[in-house]
Structure formats: C-alpha cells, structure tokens
C-alpha cells in the first residue's frame, strides 16, 4: 500500500503515535552519534578513525532527518535538542552509556547490537503509511547496512584469540541495556493500526533475538538469557535514564547555554 498520510491528515491520536515513533528514532541516532564521536582521534588506527567518523556522521545525519520530520509537525530544533528536558529523551539506555578508556570491544559490540536492531526497525518502516517517513527510509537503510557490516567484521576478528574476553565483558554489560531497545511504546496500538510501522515491537524483539543470539553464539560468546537477565532500573524509552545521561546532555548543551540560546545555525539548507 503506498504511503498516503501527510502531516495535515493526522488527528491528535495519530500525531501522538507518530511523534513517539519519531522521537525514538531520532534520539537513538543522536545519542549513539554523540557517544561514537568520543572515538574520533582516539581510534586504534587512522583507518578505523576515519571509518568510525563516517558512521558517527551518518547517525547525526539520520537524527537530523528524523528531527526534521518532527519540525514538519511544528517543533523547532531548539525544542527538540537544545531545550528539551533531559528526562523527555526517549533513546534506549544502550546508546547513552559512556565508554571506558580504550574499550574498543564496547564500541564494536554496542554498534553491532544497535545496528542489528536499527536495521530491523527500518525494514518495518519501508512500507509505512506516513509519506514523509517513507521518502526517507531507503537512504537511511542503505547507510545502516554498511554500519552493520563494519561492526560485524570487527566483531568476527575481535571474538578470536585474547580479545574475546573483552568482547564477552562488553556483552554481559551491554545486553541488558540493549533489551530496552524493544520496550513497547505507549502508543503501540495506534502505531501499528495506522500502518506507521508494519511490524509490532514484540515481533521486532523476537526477530532481533533470533538474529543476534545465534550469530554471537557462533563466535563462541555466551549470550545472557533474555528473560532471566537482570535489567537496569533505567529503561530510557520511558524517560528514565542512567546518571551518565544528565552529564552528557549538559556537555553537549554547554555552548548553546553559554551563548544564551542562539537560533541553531543551519548550513546550506532552509529551515522548514
């Protein structure tokens, strides 16, 4: 079915559902990018530095695309990024966790868990009923494929030999946070009934588990049992976050606050 819905067609319930879906997409990408850039200049080699910077910029670029869709619904960049209370961000806690110094296993494993989820989530948006979303999914999906390949080829190598323990540590630490990627949205019924997403969150979760568990096990890693794992109290999707998030949000808003809330500059494109 072709995407037929546009911003002006939405009633209040549809709008709330769509916004919830978009905030999750945008916030995940933005915060993931914000952590990835910590590795610029610090990656193990010049080549991996360049590859990582590419991925981080893709994530920021995707975040910008999704925030643009929220701007079409009447929000401003200032409201969306610079002035939104930290506890209204909806990203999963997986992407807000800081990296321990030198923990390249974390960035590789985190990227894999995240990119695998992102790919499934985007696949379920290809046939969305919301036209502005349908227009953008293809480009994002093609870039995410490269991210997933990049993460997997690193993981294939790091899971061999002495570095496997580091990967296992990262997996034990990150897996409980990754499960929060699939917390059911408040407006799940409206998201699915209106065809904004063509697969339920519960089914996405199952598909993700069926993808990542066999792959990680094939590398000789022990994957925690999803239903038995001890989950962190902060879930991200509901606005609860780890303490690291407040710190990160304060850092990226430092200049904006210091300059007394300037209109966020656009480079080479018009404001919607």
């Amino acid at each position: 079915m072709p995407a037929t819905l546009n911003p002006e067609d939405l009633d209040a319930e549809q709008r709330a559902a769509l916004e919830e879906l978009l905030f999750r997409l945008a916030d995940d990408e933005y915060v993931h990018g914000e952590r990835l850039i910590e590795w610029q200049i610090y990656a193990p080699t010049l080549e991996s530095d360049l590859a990582l910077a590419n991925v981080a910029q893709d994530e920021f670029g995707h975040a910008r695309l999704w925030y643009d869709l929220l701007e079409e619904l009447g929000h401003t960049e200032a409201e969306l990024i610079w002035e939104r209370p930290a506890d209204e961000f909806r990203h999963a806690t997986l992407v807000e966790l800081p990296f321990a110094e030198g923990d390249w296993a974390d960035v590789v494993l985190r990227s894999y868990l995240y990119d695998a989820a992102e790919r499934l989530r985007l696949d379920a948006l290809v046939d969305t009923s919301y036209a502005p979303l349908a227009d953008r999914v293809g480009k994002v999906l093609s870039e995410e494929r490269y991210h997933l390949e990049n993460a997997q080829s690193w993981l294939d190598r790091l899971a061999e030999g002495d570095s496997r323990d580091r990967v296992q540590d990262a997996l034990d630490r990150l897996f409980p946070h990754a499960l929060s990627l699939f917390a059911e949205p408040e407006h799940e019924a409206a998201i699915v009934d209106n065809g904004f997403r063509t697969m339920s969150t519960a089914d996405l979760r199952i598909e993700w588990l069926e993808t990542v568990i066999p792959y990680l096990e094939s590398l000789g890693l022990d994957v925690p049992e999803p239903d038995e794992v001890e989950r962190p109290s902060a879930r991200g999707r509901d606005g609860t976050h780890t303490d690291h998030w407040d710190e990160l949000a304060a850092e990226f808003r430092r200049t904006y606050d210091e300059l007394e809330a300037p209109e966020p500059a656009r480079i080479g494109r018009e404001r919607v």
Partner: peptide, 25 residues
C-alpha cells in the same frame, strides 16, 4: 574534537565532526 560535542547546532556538529575526520584523512 571536544567541540564536535559542544557545537550549538546539529548542522555545526556535523560540519565539525566532518572537519575532524578530514584532519585525520
């Protein structure tokens, strides 16, 4: 590098990240 994070707009953040990447290139 620290100013990628501290850039006050998403466009500037992207441009600054690309700049640091270019320097490594």
């Amino acid at each position: 590098k620290p100013f990628i994070r501290q850039a006050p707009s998403i466009d500037r953040k992207l441009a600054f990240s690309a700049k640091v990447q270019d320097e490594i290139g």
